[in-house]
Amino acid sequence: MPDPETPEDGIDPRNRLEALDRAVKAALDKRAADQAAADAREARAKQAQAGGAAWRMISNLVLATVLVAAAGYGLDRLFGTTPLGLVSGVFIGFAAGVWMAYQASARLQASQDPPAAGLAPVAKEEEGTDGDLR
């Protein structure tokens, strides 16, 4: 036979508010922890993306120099203009590599800045806060 003083969930009515508070606090804490974990994951993903982009820039730089120099060397062999093609190939290839890196950096910046500004309107006044090479 149920005691009329104690409700079905077995909690003293005087303590109910406290129990509710605890439950709410626990839920809020959990949500904050989840949010922090998600933020950390996103930050890691962004970092990985930037690292990948940096690695592509460097490999592009080297590959552009090597490939264009090789093409210049091939032209030299074809037309007998040794060493013009090789030398100009190294410099033109290098210039192309730097240009690609510059473009990639600009793209990276464009792809990463707008969402950051959209998520946190407070950060808008410090636009361009983030370095280009994140």
């Binding site: 410090e126 636009e127 361009g128 370095g131 280009d132």
Partner: peptide
């Protein structure tokens, strides 16, 4: 890091400087 607001405008100079330094080695 010191003056983040000026960083974005200097990307071009950054790459020109890096390219010049590297080209000398080339």
């Amino acid at each position: 890091m010191r003056n983040p607001s000026a960083a974005a405008g200097q990307t071009g100079n950054l790459f020109v400087g890096a390219a010049l330094a590297e080209a000398a080695g080339l």
